[in-house]
């Protein structure tokens, strides 16, 4: 465990906490894409199947359970909670899951580390996570008033991905035979998707004005 990896995981955890804070205390999910949250729930459900097959560390197990539990509870809140669900921007959140899920599934059956169910699902989870933020970014662009918590949530998610890249660079130079091409390429693609958002986020921060993405 290096500092970049730990900082990345903590930033990921912080993003989830910010989102849960918004949903649980303000009882609002305005500006949050249910599509993205469902894609994350599928991502973690398919990637963390190894909870049942491999033990890596106490830290690893606890974090996996947290990310699984939080992603499914966020989906539950947005779909079922009698107050929270009313704030969901259903008409704006129109991205189709299947346009993302199907290509990822196809890609995973062709490009994986080994042709086993576990490895195909692992690759699928990486491809899906790389694009899962797209419905959220589309929704942000359509939202005239992006509240602070939503902006911070997306910023923390992007920061988590950027820190993971630093973690891979560090590990590549410090560990023998540490090579994960699929993870790296997906990670870089995923981080690039945030580039535009980062640009406007820093602009609004520098000028101290409300975040708004150009249509």
């Amino acid at each position: 465990m290096n500092i970049f990896r730990l900082a990345g995981d903590m930033t990921h955890l912080a993003s989830v906490l910010v989102l849960l804070l918004k949903i649980h205390t303000i009882k609002s999910c305005a500006g949050i894409s249910l599509k993205t949250q469902e894609l994350y729930a599928i991502t973690f459900a398919t990637r963390y199947l190894d909870l049942f097959t491999d033990y890596i560390s106490f830290y690893n197990t606890v974090m996996k359970i947290i990310f699984l539990g939080s992603s499914f509870s966020i989906v539950w809140y947005m779909r079922r909670h009698k107050v929270v669900r009313r704030s969901y921007d259903r008409d704006q959140d129109t991205f189709r899951h299947f346009f993302l899920i199907l290509p990822c599934l196809l890609l995973a059956t062709f490009i994986n580390e080994k042709l086993t169910a576990k490895e195909v699902l692992w690759a699928f989870s990486l491809y899906l996570e790389a694009v899962a933020i797209l419905p959220q970014l589309v929704l942000l662009q359509r939202t005239r008033n992006i509240d602070n918590l939503t902006g911070q949530y997306v910023f923390l998610l992007g920061a988590y991905r950027a820190l993971y890249i630093l973690n891979w660079i560090y590990r590549y130079f410090t560990e023998a035979r540490y090579v994960h091409w699929i993870t790296w390429i997906c990670g870089v693609v995923q981080t690039l998707l945030y580039a535009d958002f980062f640009y406007y986020y820093f602009q609004s921060w520098k000028k101290n004005v409300k975040l708004e993405l150009p249509a």
């Binding site: 990896r5 995981d9 580390e113 080994k114 692992w122 993870t183």
Partner: peptide, 10 residues
Amino acid sequence: DDDEGVKDEL
């Protein structure tokens, strides 16, 4: 290569 399968990241 045995450790190819070890995936310790989240």
